[in-house]
Amino acid sequence: MIVFEKVSFSYSENLILNNISFKIGEGEKVAILGGSGGGKTTILKLIVGLLKPDSGRIIIDGVDITDLEEDELMEVRRKFSIVFQDGALFDSLNVKENVAFCLREYTNMTEKEIDEKVDELLTIVGVEHAKYYMTDELSGGMHRRVAIARSLAVSKPKMFLYDEATTGLDPVNALNICNLINELSKNGTGHIIVTHRVIDALRVADRFIFLKDGQIVLDGDRSILLSSNISDVMIFLSELKQIS
């Protein structure tokens, strides 16, 4: 479904991704790990066409999206549902209006139908009580949950993309978000989670891609990750040892 072929990307003169290639199939649950500024979020933005690579090709469901124009990318973006770091909720709108945003934009639903749909989505993510809160009244965990509810309102995506969905949350909220991510992927919908928390990656993913200096240094399943002797991976895994 998602194919990266020798993709390179740089911000100004900083090379972020250096000639990376990988394939992610439909329904796969993938975690992209790596240090801050390592290009993890850049990969998500490249997948949905928010950024263009300097070189290489990105193919989504057989379509090369590398040179597509903004309006041509709409079709590609409908296949994904992305939750940005910190939720990226519209801070001028309340929770209900954030979740209803796409419903108002793309459907002819009546106000009553929108209200019911928002209730349904907020119940799925467990924040139905915060329907009329403004976004600055939400805790970090609630922020992510509302962002997930908003992403569910878009359509039925083929794959969820989560950017640092658990970063900055306390362990209980992080676990709850991971459970929610797993719950949403039960019907065969895949997801890619970008994180630097190995423990959360292990909770939600079957496949792990580790980035270092703009290159993929590890791509494999749980056993390959846990037995890796790459120094950076071992440092990340030491988080698990500290917990145990």
């Binding site: 928010l50 709409m74 994904f80 990226a88 519209f90 801070d91």
Partner: peptide, 18 residues
């Protein structure tokens, strides 16, 4: 500017809003 920094403009683009 704060919408750009907070990825709110990216959200709009992903939702298909110009």
């Amino acid at each position: 500017g704060s919408m750009i920094i907070g990825h709110q403009v990216d959200s709009l683009r992903v939702f298909g809003v110009d």
